[in-house]
Every structure is written in structure tokens, then in C-alpha cells.
Design a protein around this nucleic acid. Structure first.
Lengths: 211, 211
DNA sequence: TTTATTATTATACAAATGTATAATTAATTC
DNA sequence: GAATTAATTATACATTTGTATAATAATAAA
């Protein structure tokens, strides 16, 4: 490791830690209030450093956002692996139940990454489209595996099925304030997630309204 | 009509026309690029008037947005009435088909109002919550009527079913750029709407993946 | 036509915010 | 410990944008 150091450069951890703190602060802000509300001064204050340092590490606001995008991409992939990655056994109902449990366990504490992903999905720049494409492919794999598990004939084109699933996943994230206001509690409390996922599972397996 | 005029006031039409133009320009901008991109100077330029005049009519940016909210609320209500308002006859499949036709006819040319509604739904201020609550109730009435038509036992609480429907309706609006990028054409071309609504109808009646 | 009121514009101001630069401090190596 | 390089800050600048005000033009009533 020592040969990794170059002349006059302090140990790498400090730089990594700073970047982590700054990205983390930025993700928090975007998750809660969107990219519009993301400004470099607030990030600096939240991380207790100067404005100049943020710029020093990321070069520009675009650079900071890019770092956040990458971090969130990784986190979301990890969450998906944890929730949907294991091989399924048992009846469809059992699988749904287990998936619900995992969703609550995994998604609830890391909801901010999905909130960020929702905001990212509403951008219209190239990096956002690329990140979203990765997310789309991840969901596609999941949906097509569900299709196989259910022993149903593979659809010619699952694109819209994948999007429907994405709408149901990102909808609660994007409309969280409205939902909170209408149901009178937070959308991502475990109990509330359970009620919603139950409703969603029923819809995915047998339609919106059938009981 | 003449007794409608007051001292020194030019005929009311001019004022109304101006306000309409300004609100229309503002809605266009928000629908395409969100509230963040809405600035009073651009509205003024699009309507070919001065910045001061926008402020003169609406008092503030909040006033302009409020006028847009109201206009959109009305338009969306009208669209809903046109698409879902008529009494349904025939089998569930026939109803879905007819609804699809109406959706394409009514929604496609007026998509900007739904795009605005999508942006509005992501705000977190009181007026937005109130407008969204109106929209929620409209959808709720529709979903519960669907429930009755389908001869299925009324659910104790249809709240989540309503939200699922809203996610499926606003999702394409909010994620339009991403969808466009992935499918390689515009989300709201009649043909594309048809494919999506077909997929959605199948999901609503019999689940996500069943054919 | 004169007067009052509205419609409209031009201009300026202030706050927020990304960017840029130079100076200072801290850490590392020799 | 001196030299070097990175880490960090302080400060300034330019742009965008909502707001404010005063002046001018247009319109209608008298």
C-alpha cells in the first residue's frame, strides 16, 4: 500500500471520506427536495466544509451530480440484489409474502436512494438516461423471471409490463408528499409499505380490484 | 353586455385574452420542462409582452402558478368527464376497448394538462396538495365505479387501488423522456398509447403478466 | 376634448447561485 | 526540519430571476 502513495499526497482515506460525506449530503438533499433544491453551498454546510472544497473535489455541480448518480446506481443495484436476487421457492403467495418482507426490510431504511432515482428519472440529460436504462434492464430481468416462475407464456415484448412495474415502484416515491397528505401518515413506514405492496401484489397477480 | 363596462375600463375581453395567453404559455413551459424552468421572462417573451405585464396581471410568480393550477384542474376534470363520464355497456373487454379509444382521442391532444398535473403532483405546497386531492377524488369515483361494474365485492378501502391507478396514469407522463429514449418513439403517439393502455388494461383485469 | 383609469413598458434592485482565483493551512516526504 | 504538494478557505464575479417602481401609451367615460 505504501508504494501507492505519491509525493506530498496525504493518505487517500481522507479524500475518500470527504467525497463520501459530500455525496451523501447531496443525495439527501435531492432525495428530499429534488435536484432544483440542490445547491453547492448547502452541501458544503451540511458536510461542514467550505463551498470551495466541494468544487475542488467535483469540479462543478455537474461533477457532483455525476458522483451522486454513480453512488445511487450502485446502491439500487445492491437493494435489488437483496430483494429479488435469491432464488424463489414455494407457492406464488408465499413468494409474494417473502418478497414483501424483503422489501420492507431492505427498501424502507434505504428509501432515499429510490427517492434520488425518482428524481433522476425525471431529468432529461444523457447521464440520467443512461442510469435509467440500467435500472430498466434490472427490472426487466426481474419481471421476466417472475413470468417464468408463474409458468405463464412468455410475452413477445415485456417492455410495457416492465414499465408498469416501474410506475408502481417509482410512483410512491415521486408522489410521496401527496400520498402522505391523503393517507395521513408516511408512505414508507413499514406498515404502510405492507398495505401498499399487498394491494400491488394482488393487482400484479389477479388484477386491480379483485379480492 | 354594455352595462358590464365600468368607468375607464377597456373592454374586458382584452384582459381575459391576455391572461389566457400568459397562462397558456406558462402551462406549456411547465408541461415540457417543469416548474423549475418556469420563469416570468420567458412567459412574457412567449406571449410577446413585457415582463412587467405578467406581474401586473398575476401579482407574483405564485399568482401565475395559481392561475395555471386552476386552469389545469378544470381541463383535467373535463377530460375525465369525456373519457370516463359516460355510462358503460357491454362486456368488460368491450368497455376497456371503448375506454382506450376515448383515452386516445381525448388525452393525446391534451396531454400537456396531464404533464402539468404530473409536475403539480410533485410539488409540496398547499395549493398543489389541494389540487391533487381533487384529482384523487375524481379517480376514486372512477375506480369504485369500475369495481361495481366488474361485479366484484367492494373493497373496504380502495385508497391503494386508487393510487395504483394514479401511478399508472402519471407514470408515463413523468417518465416520458426516459420512456421515449427506451422505446425509440414518443410515449403519447396514439399507437404507443394503445399498446400501453392494452398492457395496462390486461393488468388491471387479470394481472401483470397473464396473457 | 379632457380626464380618469387601465394597459404596457423600461429600468433598476436584490437575492440566490455556479464559477473562478488567490491565499492559507495541513500533511507528507526527504 | 525544510520543501513540496494537497487540502481548505475566503473572496470576488457573473448570471439568472423574482420583485419593485416610475413613466408612457391606450382606452373609455364625461
Amino acid at each position: 500500500m505504501s508504494h501507492n502513495r505519491k509525493v506530498g499526497r496525504p493518505k487517500a482515506n481522507k479524500q475518500i471520506d470527504r467525497c463520501y460525506d459530500l455525496v451523501s449530503a447531496a443525495i439527501d438533499i435531492v432525495a428530499k427536495r429534488g435536484f432544483t433544491s440542490l445547491n453547492m453551498r448547502e452541501v458544503a454546510i451540511k458536510a461542514d466544509v467550505s463551498l470551495g472544497l466541494v468544487r475542488h473535489y467535483f469540479g462543478s455541480k455537474a461533477g457532483l451530480i455525476s458522483a451522486c448518480d454513480t453512488a445511487v446506481e450502485r446502491e439500487v443495484a445492491a437493494i435489488f440484489a437483496a430483494v429479488f436476487g435469491r432464488s424463489e421457492t414455494g407457492s406464488a403467495e408465499q413468494q409474494v409474502e417473502e418478497m414483501t418482507q424483503r422489501l420492507i426490510a431492505e427498501v424502507s431504511p434505504k428509501i432515499k436512494y429510490f427517492q434520488y432515482l425518482g428524481q433522476l428519472a425525471m431529468r432529461n440529460d444523457k447521464p440520467a438516461r443512461e442510469s435509467f436504462a440500467v435500472y430498466f434492464e434490472t427490472v426487466k430481468v426481474f419481471v421476466e423471471r417472475l413470468d417464468t416462475v408463474q409458468q405463464l407464456p412468455q410475452q413477445r415484448d415485456s417492455t410495457w409490463a416492465v414499465f408498469q412495474f416501474i410506475f408502481l415502484q417509482l410512483g410512491p416515491v415521486l408522489l410521496q408528499p401527496q400520498i402522505n397528505s391523503i393517507i395521513g401518515r408516511d408512505t414508507f413506514e413499514p406498515e404502510v409499505i405492507r398495505a401498499r405492496v399487498t394491494s400491488m401484489s394482488r393487482m400484479l397477480t389477479s388484477g386491480l380490484l379483485s379480492a
